[in-house]
């Protein structure tokens, strides 16, 4: 019975849709509305203030620090992670299969840890007096290079970047390895016969054929770089310091909402971040749109 089928379909769809609307779409929509008010987060009412919150964003030096830091993260983290991921993945292709498999598992380990755990572990590593990094430097006779990594404005953000890259590179090694394995073996053999070296093989054969994976990786990593909240919140001085050196938009937003009780203003930050992320995703996917390569 067609009628029954339709009823069944609606019956199956509606609960999921309702949940999605109530818990996903409606909060999104509300954030847009709240960002135009002075809601405090505890009051039952909110006053409409128009674009005030957005105007304020432009003059908030800590927020601008956050934007600058997120922009730096966005420049560095995806590039380095993808470069490392591709390098390791193509190395794994050429290494013996058992060893490669073992490495792939080891690289994936950080992915199994919660980001908070990663951040706590790395804050031990960075401890200026007893941390692994400084102790290692001192043991190697490089004590002069030892730093108060998280307390020096010049090193704090790079230290955070290193953690973000370390924690995500393993996942992309596995992703790229899978993509590389999808490339027919005879292409590599042909390249080898034509006398292509390792670099030529990588840049002329491997890279063009894993383009799509790289593009997706850019989007994911870009979004992760625009976030970075957990690592910064757990690890850095302040957090977000020293003196704003590691402030990120997510942290500003969190503090504005939950410490300062300015949910309206915090929502404006959230909306700004939403558009930044959306723009990034669209740009990354559009820019690389090319005709799909057909493999044999």
């Amino acid at each position: 019975m067609r009628h029954g089928r339709r009823r069944f379909l609606i019956g199956a769809l509606v609960p999921a849709l309702v949940l999605h609307v109530v818990f996903v779409l409606s909060p999104y929509a509300q954030a847009f509305w709240v960002s135009l008010t002075d809601w405090t987060g505890v009051a039952g009412e909110a006053r409409f203030v128009g674009a005030d919150n957005y105007v304020r964003l432009g003059g908030d030096s800590l927020f601008l620090d956050a934007v600058r830091n997120n922009a730096l993260l966005l420049l560095v983290v995806p590039l380095v992670t993808i470069a490392l991921g591709l390098f390791l993945a193509s190395m794994l292709r050429t290494s013996s299969s058992r060893l490669g498999q073992g490495y792939r598992i080891v690289y994936f380990f950080p992915q199994l840890l919660s980001l908070v755990v990663v951040a706590v572990l790395w804050s031990f590593v960075y401890n200026p007096n007893t941390g692994l990094l400084n102790s290692g430097l001192r043991a190697a006779g490089l004590g002069g290079l030892a730093q108060s990594w998280l307390a020096e404005p010049a090193f704090a953000l790079p230290a955070v970047m290193a953690v973000l890259i370390w924690s995500s590179v393993g996942f992309y090694v596995v992703l790229f390895s899978a993509a590389i394995e999808g490339i027919p073996r005879d292409l590599f053999e042909a390249a080898l016969l034509d006398g292509a070296g390792k670099w030529a093989t990588f840049s002329r054969v491997t890279l063009p054929l894993v383009r799509e994976s790289v593009q997706v990786a850019f989007v994911y990593l870009g979004i992760a770089a625009l976030d970075a909240f957990a690592v910064v919140q757990v690890m850095t001085v302040g957090p977000g310091g020293p003196d704003g050196a590691t402030e990120v938009i997510g942290l500003s937003l969190y503090r504005t909402a939950f410490t300062y009780g300015k949910f309206g203003y915090a929502s404006a930050m959230g909306v700004a971040l939403f558009f930044a992320t959306l723009t990034l995703a669209v740009l990354a996917l559009r820019s690389g749109r090319k005709e799909r390569l057909e493999l044999a």
């Binding site: 609606i10 769809l13 509606v14 849709l17 609307v21 409606s26 509300q30 809601w39 039952g44």
Partner: peptide
Amino acid sequence: VLKTAAVLSVPALGGCVTSGS
């Protein structure tokens, strides 16, 4: 589907953050 979603979302949005005024 969109129509249904829109209809459903009205009461959902009504139960919004500042409605306890």
